[in-house]
Amino acid sequence: TYAMRRPFVGAPVSYREYFRGSLPTHLVGMLGGAVWCLGTAFSYIAAGKAGAAISYALGQGAPMIAAVWGVFIWKEFKGADRRTNTLLAVMFLFFIAGLASIIASGGN
């Protein structure tokens, strides 16, 4: 409701306009929710088997995958200056080091 009233981009949307959306559009939203639900369920299952720390670290790897796609597949930073590329490399290193630290902690 808040995002409908104060969207990041575009004009505010009413509930009436929302329900005028096509079935395929609503199904894509439901599919996204189902994928999120499945991921959360797998995270809880992994926490019971591998421990909360490892499960959390695996779940937090998703932004890293998104960053890899953005940088290397979609080339979102193509033509960026040297400083930006250095910051991207540092970001990848720190993110991986953080995930490795969480995994190494083993829930201690």
Results as ranks from 00 to 15, higher is better:
F72E: 00
T40H: 10
Y18D: 03
K78T: 10
L23H: 08
V68Y: 04
G59N: 15
A47G: 02
V13A: 09
M4T: 06
L23P: 11
I45T: 04
D81Q: 11
A50N: 02
A62Y: 14
F42D: 07
H26V: 03
V13D: 04
Q60S: 14
L23V: 10
A50V: 07
T86P: 10
Y2R: 02
A53W: 08
G32D: 13
A46P: 11
A53Q: 02
S14D: 05
K49E: 13
I73D: 08
I65Q: 00
G59H: 15
Y56L: 11
A66V: 05
F72C: 00
V9P: 01
A3C: 02
A62E: 12
S14N: 00
L88C: 07
K49V: 13
G51A: 04
L87D: 09
V13W: 08
Y56C: 10
R5I: 09
W36I: 12
T40L: 13
G29L: 14
A47S: 06
F8A: 06
S14H: 04
I73Q: 02
F8T: 00
A47E: 09
T84E: 13
Y56N: 05
R82H: 11
Y2H: 08
M4G: 09
V9N: 00
A53V: 07
I54G: 00
A80T: 14
T1R: 08
S55M: 01
A34H: 10
E17S: 04
G79F: 11
R83V: 15
A11Q: 01
Q60E: 15
G33A: 11
L31R: 05
D81I: 14
V71A: 04
G33Q: 10
S55R: 00
Y2G: 01
G48M: 09
A34C: 10
V71L: 03
G21E: 05
G59Q: 13
A57R: 03
G61N: 08
A46W: 11
R6T: 10
N85H: 15
H26G: 05
F8N: 02
D81H: 12
I45D: 09
L38W: 11
A62M: 13
Y44N: 06
R5C: 09
V28S: 06
P24W: 10
Q60F: 15
G21Y: 01
S43H: 14
A89F: 04
E76W: 08
L23M: 12
G48I: 03
W74Q: 07
A67M: 07
G79E: 10
A47F: 06
G32F: 15
M30F: 13
T86L: 12
W69T: 06
F77C: 02
W36P: 06
A89K: 00
A41E: 03
N85V: 14
G29F: 15
I73N: 05
G10P: 00
G61S: 12
R6C: 04
G79D: 08
V13T: 11
G79T: 02
V35D: 06
V28D: 08
L27I: 09
R6F: 12
G29E: 14
G70M: 12
